Simulated scan of single mutants.
Amino acid sequence: MTETAPEVRGGFPDVRPVEDAPDELGPFVAALRRLQDLTVSSKPDPALWAAATEHLENACALLDGHQVPETEAVAGRVLTLPGLAHPLMPPWLVTDSGPDGVTMAGHFTTAHIGGNRAVHGGMIPLFYDWLLGMVVSTADIRPTRTAYLHVDYRKITPIDEPLTAQGRISRVDGRKVFIDATMTSADGSLLSEANGLMVRLLPHQP
C-alpha cells in the first residue's frame, strides 16, 4: 500500500463524478449561467433589480436547509453537463479522456468578458486549473493539489465561439505530476498554453 492510497490518505474527501444527476439540474444551472450573463450586460429600470432580487431570495429560500457534505453534493460533479454542472465554471465538456490526456470543448460567455468581447484574463487560469485536475483524475492520480500554474497568452480568447483545449501529463517525478495544456480556436489558432505541477497529497495534508 502506498502513502497516497485512498485507505491512508487522511481525511481528504473522496469526491467522485455523479452518474445519476437529476434531469432538473441541467436547466437550473443553465438558468444561473444565463442570469450571470444578463447581470453583467443589462441596464434595466432600478425597480427591476429589486424585483429580480426578490425572485433570487425566494430561490435561495427553496434550497436553504438542503445543504449536504461535498461528497454528497451533485452540482460540480456531473461529467455529462457543461462545466460539470457548476454555475461558476465555463460551459465546457470533456470530449475525450484516457492515459494520453484529456480533451475538452466549449466556449466562454458574456459573464466572462474582460473587455472588448475578450475573455477576462483571470478566467483562463481558472479553466486550466480545472483541466489539470481532470487530467490527473482521469489518470487516477489522486488526491492532488495545484503547486503552480503558468499561463502564456498567445492571442485574445473570444467569447461565444467554439474552442478546444487539451492537457496531458508530460512527466511524473515521485509525487510531482507535470502537465502541459493548450487552448485553440475553431480554425486551430493557438490562443493560450499552460504548464502546471500537481502534487499528490501525503496522508496528513488536507
Rank of each mutant, 00 (worst) to 15 (best):
Ala61Gln: 12
Val40Gly: 05
Pro17Val: 13
Arg145Glu: 03
Ala118Met: 06
Arg142Ser: 06
Arg200Lys: 15
Trp92Asn: 01
Ile169Tyr: 03
Met134Pro: 00
Met1Gly: 15
Asp152Tyr: 06
Ala75Val: 08
Asp187Asn: 15
Thr71Cys: 02
Leu56Trp: 10
Met104Gly: 00
Val8Arg: 13
Pro158Asn: 07
Thr80Gly: 15
Gly121Lys: 07
Gly122Leu: 05
Leu81Ser: 02
Thr80Trp: 00
Ile141Pro: 00
Gly76Ala: 07
Leu35Lys: 04
Val199Pro: 03
Cys60Gly: 01
Asp37Thr: 09
Asp160Ile: 05
Ile179Arg: 04
Met104Cys: 13
Ser137Ile: 03
Val151Asn: 11
Asp180Asn: 12
Thr144His: 04
Gly188Arg: 14
Leu149Ala: 03
Val29Asn: 07
Trp130Tyr: 00
Ala61His: 09
Leu84Pro: 01
Leu132His: 02
Val74Gln: 03
Lys155Tyr: 01
Ile124Asp: 03
Asp45Ser: 15
Asp160Ser: 15
Thr164Leu: 14
Gly101His: 07
Arg175Gly: 07
Lys155Trp: 06
Ala30Ile: 01
Gln205Leu: 07
Thr182Asn: 06
Ala31Val: 01
Leu56Gln: 07
Val8Gly: 09
Gly167Ala: 06
Arg171Lys: 13
Glu24Cys: 05
Ile169Gln: 01
Leu131Cys: 04
Val177Ile: 15
Leu35Cys: 08
Val29Phe: 05
Asn195Ile: 01
Val8Leu: 09
Pro206Cys: 02
Asp14Tyr: 05
Glu24Met: 08
Val18Leu: 10
Pro13Gln: 05
Pro46Phe: 12
Leu63Thr: 15
Leu197Tyr: 02
Arg154Met: 12
Val68Trp: 02
Thr157Tyr: 01
Arg145Ala: 15
Ala194Gln: 08
Asp37Tyr: 06
Gln166His: 14
Ser192Tyr: 09
Ala30Val: 05
Asn58Asp: 13
Glu70Phe: 01
Leu126Glu: 12
Pro162Arg: 11
Asp187Tyr: 09
Asp20Val: 14
Leu62Ala: 15
Gly106His: 08
Pro203Thr: 07
Thr53Pro: 00
Ala50Phe: 04
Met134Arg: 15
Lys155Pro: 00
Gly196Glu: 08
Phe108Pro: 00
Leu163Trp: 08
Lys155Met: 09
Ser170Trp: 00
Met134Asp: 02
Thr53Leu: 14
Ala194His: 04
Glu70Gln: 11
Ser185Gln: 13
Ser192Gln: 03
Ser97Asp: 07
Thr144Lys: 06
Pro13Met: 10
Ala73Glu: 13
Ala85Arg: 02
Ala75Lys: 03
Asp187Gly: 12
Pro90Ser: 01
Ala147Tyr: 02
His204Ser: 09
Leu202Asp: 14
Ile156Ser: 08
Arg154Leu: 11
Pro143Asp: 11
His120Tyr: 11
Tyr148Trp: 14
Tyr153Ala: 05
Val135Trp: 01
Leu56Ile: 13
Thr110Trp: 03
His86Glu: 11
Pro143Trp: 12
Pro143Met: 08
Phe178Leu: 08
His112Lys: 01
Gly188Lys: 14
Asp45Gly: 09
Asp100His: 13
Arg175Trp: 10
Ala181Glu: 06
Val199Ala: 12
Asp20Pro: 11
Ala85Trp: 01
Ala61Ile: 04
Arg168Cys: 10
His107Met: 13
Ala21Leu: 09
Ser97Asn: 09
Ala59Gln: 03
Thr2Gln: 10
